[in-house]
């Protein structure tokens, strides 16, 4: 009985701590992105972050997109050719990428590539008292450090997802058309007929906007809230990748159910 109570208490405490952290993260984000900007030329800070968060992620995103498109095309061809409908490879590749793999895989890669970097950077700034000294200079680190990083991630994600899907479709064409010999006209034609802008492309963009918001929010909050020691920062970085991945996959199911599940 005693042990059971202790377990229950632990569970309760973990729950409370979780909600407390959620509350802190909401307060942090609202302080960061609402209200007057402290720094006049904030767009320059934003540009610098867009470069390091977005542009520097381009390599991993395009290479991954290319390979995923190629694999999809190869697998799709092998299955569809048994029904004699290999012309539909283009449709399959495009729908898979635009609806699912584009937003989801981009978000997962982004969490690993950029999210972890954001967490480590902000956490280290905290550990080396840079955030504290900024506060004492009279500059709000939420506005100066957190806000531009958050917006950069939020803006980059949908663009990266679009690039991922586009490169993937071209990779699919490379394998399907140039290597396996699907008729080029049907690869593109079937794709054009079956992919709708509002139902597929727009829904994919909405997904990646949501993922961009969530992943960047988790990343900046974990950095800002990290315990300022080497162990604390390493745990925060791990948490960023784990929480972001779980959040992306979980939200993807919910969003898919709402968008395509006929709910």
């Amino acid at each position: 009985m005693h042990k059971l109570l202790a377990r229950l208490r632990l569970l309760g405490r973990a729950g409370l701590e979780g909600f407390e952290a959620l509350g802190r993260s909401v307060i942090m984000l609202s302080r960061a992105i609402f209200g007057r900007s402290v720094f006049g030329s904030r767009y320059q800070l934003l540009l610098a972050q867009l470069y390091s968060v977005g542009v520097l992620s381009l390599v991993i995103i395009t290479v991954s997109g290319l390979f995923i498109g190629m694999v999809l095309s190869l697998q799709g061809y092998n299955i569809l050719v048994t029904y004699g409908s290999e012309q539909a490879v283009g449709q399959m590749v495009a729908l898979t990428l635009v609806r699912e793999l584009g937003p989801v895989v981009t978000a997962l890669l982004f969490a690993g590539r950029a999210g972890s970097a954001l967490t480590a950077e902000i956490g280290l700034m905290k550990a080396t008292e840079q955030l504290s000294s900024m506060e004492m200079i009279g500059v709000d680190p939420l506005k100066r450090i957190v806000a531009p990083r958050f917006w950069a991630g939020f803006i980059s994600m949908p663009i990266l997802a679009l690039i991922f899907s586009a490169v993937g479709i071209m990779g699919g064409a490379m394998v399907g058309v140039n290597w396996l010999g699907i008729y080029e006209g049907s690869y593109w034609g079937v794709m054009q007929n079956s992919v709708s802008f509002t139902d597929d492309v727009l829904n994919g963009i909405i997904k990646s906007v949501v993922f961009g918001f969530v992943v960047t929010w988790i990343a900046v909050f974990q950095g800002y809230d990290a315990i300022p020691t080497s162990e604390g920062i390493s745990r925060a970085t791990t948490r960023t990748v784990v929480y972001s991945s779980l959040a992306v996959l979980g939200l993807d199911f919910v969003l898919t159910a709402v968008m395509f599940g006929g709910l």
Binding site: T128, E129, S132, S133
Partner: peptide
Amino acid sequence: GMLFQSGALFT
């Protein structure tokens, strides 16, 4: 003004 123990310069 505050002088931090580590200096806390922006790296």
